[in-house]
């Protein structure tokens, strides 16, 4: 009796959950592909970081966000570096080549005018590169509210043997 009732409740819930996740614009893969990654002491934080900067995240958090496919990754390096190896699906906004005028407009259009609340992770190559930090500070000024900085960058991503996207036309 009780077992049958529990089965009915679970059956209805699983049915509704499945249907909703098929039709919802916010659907997620039924099976996650999270990996157990340890970043040792947590996120890499540069000495130049200051209070008010967006949060710095470690490799495990970056990979988790990547698996959820709910976050936009921005590669702040030059196009030549971006095309050779980047986190799959990343958008390239080279910080050093931002136009001198209408920077906010340029960034907004590069992101297809997506919502300013969209979760965004900014990275560059690694600890020696602070383009991600500068890009994040600028984007904060432009009104983006859900930013994180993955300061370990593409090198840490590659060191953990995570998938990299390599474009044609890479000149090493």
């Amino acid at each position: 009796m009780v077992g049958k009732q529990i089965f009915i409740i679970l059956f209805i819930s699983i049915l509704l959950g499945s249907i909703t996740n098929f039709v919802s614009p916010n659907k997620i893969p039924f099976i996650g592909e999270y990996r157990e990654l340890s970043s040792g002491d947590g996120p890499v934080i540069p000495p130049s970081a200051s209070e008010g900067d967006p949060p710095f995240i470690a490799i495990d958090v970056a990979e988790m966000e990547f698996s959820l496919k709910n976050t936009v990754f921005i590669d702040a390096r030059d196009y030549e570096e971006f095309i050779c190896a980047t986190i799959p699906g990343s958008i390239n906004i080279p910080f050093e080549y931002l136009p001198e005028e209408n920077v906010a407009e340029f960034v907004d259009s590069s992101l297809s005018y997506m919502s300013k609340e969209t979760p965004i992770i900014i990275f560059c190559s690694g600890e020696e590169c602070d383009l991600s930090l500068h890009m994040a500070r600028n984007m904060q000024d432009f009104g983006y509210t859900n930013l994180s900085i993955f300061f370990g960058g593409s090198r840490e991503w590659e060191n953990f043997e995570l998938e990299m996207e390599r474009g044609e036309g890479c000149v090493e």
Partner: peptide, 8 residues
Amino acid sequence: NLINLLAV
């Protein structure tokens, strides 16, 4: 691999 199933 169970996280998303639980979340749904």
